[in-house]
């Protein structure tokens, strides 16, 4: 049985939904699936959602997690929403570069810069 405890810390401020992860390692298939479902619930409840995913304290990320980010990005696009990523550890950023997902996602150094980049 999977735990129903949230895998995310969620903050809503100025029309932006900011999520952080409770886990340092985003590897476990069941957790990744839960993260995807939780984010979907969050964005589906908003009109043209603005989502900021803050990777503070995340040490490891698997390709399955990248897959969930892509699914979230596709969902946001269908909702005419916007996605920003921030605070990605340099080693994890390398994973984005290798897979060229740094070109698909808009990635900012800090949450403040990411927040400021949302279009009205």
């Amino acid at each position: 049985m999977r735990t129903s405890e949230s895998r995310l810390k969620v903050k809503k401020d100025g029309g932006v939904i900011e999520v952080q992860f409770r886990d340092r390692n985003i590897l476990d298939e069941a957790n990744i699936q839960q993260i995807g479902e939780e984010i979907k619930t969050l964005i589906d409840s908003e009109q043209k959602p603005k989502l900021l995913i803050n990777f503070t304290d995340v040490d490891h990320l698997s390709s399955a997690a990248l897959g969930t980010l892509i699914t979230v990005n596709n969902r946001l696009r269908s909702l005419q929403g916007q996605l920003r990523l921030s605070n990605i550890d340099p080693q994890i950023y390398q994973v984005f570069v290798i897979t060229k997902l740094n070109k698909l996602f808009e990635i900012h150094e800090t949450a403040d810069k990411a927040r400021a980049s949302f279009k009205p």
């Binding site: 390709s63 399955a64 990248l66 897959g67 892509i70 699914t71 994973v95 290798i98 897979t99």
Partner: peptide, 21 residues
């Protein structure tokens, strides 16, 4: 190739590429 433009938005297929890298 998961980085090809027709595959870049597919949610899977990156594991082997990361291993090789």
């Amino acid at each position: 190739d998961p980085t090809a433009s027709e595959n870049i938005e597919l949610p899977s297929g990156r594991g082997l590429m990361l291993i090789r890298s």
